[in-house]
Every structure is written in C-alpha cells, then in structure tokens.
Amino acid sequence: MKIDKLSIIIPAYNEGGTIHLILNKIKAVELIDDIQKEIIIVDDCSRDNTEQAVAEYQATNPDLNIRYFKHAKNKGKGAALHTGIAQATGAYTIIQDADLEYDPTEYNDLLKPICNGFADVVYGSRFMGSNPHRILFFWHTIGNRWLTFLSNMLSNLNLTDMETCYKLFDTKLLQSLKLREKRFGFEPEVTIKVARIPRIRIYEVGISYYGRTYEDGKKIGWKDGFRAIYCILKYGLFSSK
C-alpha cells in the first residue's frame, strides 16, 4: 500500500523544555517509501514557554511541515488529540507524546504492517520484543497490564499494551469515530471503539520505552487509572457510541 503522508499528532502541555528535542528526532527520521510527514502540535493551554519554543523551532526549520494549534483553556490530553485528529490530512495518523519516552525512529516498525497491506491499525507495545525499556514503577506496570486485560475482555482483543502512546490509525477511520474522552480515558475509548469496526485489522509491534519519573514531568497518576477503568466499563458494557 502506498502512503503519501503520515500525520503525527503531538499533544503538548508544559513541554517547552523538551519539545524541540522530540521535533529533532522526528525531523531526523526518514520514513519508508518516501512517506511525507505532517506534524500537528496541539498546545493544551501550557503555562510555560511551549508556544515560544514551537515558534522558534518553526522559524529555524521552515522545511518541516509543522501546524500549531493552541487551546484557550486546558482541556486534557484527549481533547488535544480530538483537535489534532480533526486537523489531520495524512492517509495515516500516529500519536506522539511531546516528552522523550517514545522513539520516533520506530515509526517505520509500525508502518510496515500498513505498507505491506496487512493492517488498518498498529499499536506499539512496550511489553513485547527485545527493545530497551527503562525500569521504573512496579505498580504502574501492573496497573497497565491489568487495564489492558480488562480492555481485552470487553473488546475481545489480545493486546499486550492498550495504554501505549504509539497508536497508528487509518486517518479516515479514526476521524469517523465519535470520541468523547477529554483526558487519559482516550486510550480505552479509542481501543474499544476501533475493535467494534467490522473486519478491522489490528496489529501490534514491540517498541522501546524511555519512561520518565514524576520528577521528570510524568503526568499520569492513580486517578487516571480509575478513570480508565470507568471508561473500559462504560464503552465496553454500556455504550455502543
């Protein structure tokens, strides 16, 4: 399958100190089959210098296709993704956090099942394969695995990492979904709704993971875990929309 352009959605909140680093990594990646890159940054009303950092990067890298949007008030990661999804013009869309936990050099690993005609959606799993993973929080890992297990029960999938950031979608398919979750509930909602699409082909590939500590700026916490449980039950049991 020939893909002309990949839309890369970056939700950003107070990432002024690192966003230029992730943009450098994205710029350096040469995508397979000469696929072009569209970078969509959605600033979720950051209180730091994120907007200035992006503007300076755009000024010094005019050859990079960066589109910048900013929310007038903080709405959450899911809401930032909704904005980015609506603006995507590439044939396929991937989600990229603004921090340095995920490595853009692995985009091609996720694209291969698409380009080879096998997949419509590809998830990057932190829990499979031999790529490097930073060793961090035991209970955080257990929580992720348990949420994935619960999601699998209600979606009839066998994913190993439902909560992963790296999700690659057919853009039109993604834009056809009625997504409602404005914060970290996006992950279980989009997974369950995608799983319900008839004849959908979902693949999973191993990726590396360079996790941040909370001192480094990691934002997800235990309250988000409870919200994820609520969303799995809501969309898995009680909602078909």
Rank of each mutant, 00 (worst) to 15 (best):
K178M: 06
P113D: 02
G217I: 00
I232W: 02
I94A: 11
D48W: 01
N144V: 10
E163V: 14
E204H: 10
K75G: 12
D120V: 06
L150G: 11
L136F: 09
H82D: 01
E163F: 03
A98D: 04
F169K: 09
K5M: 11
A195I: 02
S240Y: 04
Y13C: 08
R183M: 05
Y102P: 01
Q52I: 11
K219V: 08
N61A: 12
E106W: 02
E189F: 07
N144Y: 02
G17P: 05
K182F: 04
P132L: 01
F137R: 11
G16W: 00
F137L: 09
N24C: 11
L173N: 09
Y230Q: 12
A55K: 13
K5F: 01
S176Y: 02
A53Q: 04
P113S: 11
I207A: 12
F149A: 15
S151G: 15
K167M: 12
P198G: 14
F69I: 01
R183I: 02
Q96D: 03
W146V: 15
V29N: 09
K75P: 03
A55E: 00
I114H: 05
T171V: 11
G211N: 09
A98T: 06
S176F: 04
K182Y: 04
S239Y: 03
M162I: 10
L64F: 03
R180Y: 03
R47S: 15
L147G: 13
D120I: 04
I19T: 12
T18I: 13
V205F: 04
K172C: 09
Y214D: 12
K241V: 09
D170V: 08
G17T: 03
L31N: 10
R180M: 06
R201V: 05
R227Y: 03
V54S: 07
Y230L: 07
D224E: 11
A12L: 07
G76D: 02
I26Q: 11
I85T: 07
L111V: 05
M162V: 15
S130L: 07
I197W: 04
Q58T: 03
D4H: 12
S208V: 05
Y68F: 15
I41N: 07
F186P: 09
H82S: 08
K37W: 00
E51V: 08
A59T: 09
E187R: 12
S130A: 14
D99T: 11
G221C: 12
V122R: 08
T148A: 14
K25S: 14
W222A: 15
F169R: 08
C115W: 00
D109W: 00
I40Y: 02
C165N: 11
A80H: 03
I9K: 05
K77E: 04
L6K: 08
L111R: 05
L237K: 12
G236E: 00
D97K: 06
H140G: 15
I207K: 06
G76S: 10
A59G: 13
H20Y: 06
S155F: 00
L154E: 01
N24I: 02
W139P: 10
S151I: 00
E56T: 10
F138M: 08
D4I: 07
R145A: 15
E215D: 15
Y68I: 02
I95K: 08
Y166E: 00
D109E: 07
G17V: 00
E215H: 11
G221A: 13
C115F: 01
I8Q: 03
G78Y: 01
S176T: 10
P62L: 02
V205L: 07
L233S: 10
S7Q: 05
D216R: 06
G206A: 13
R227G: 11
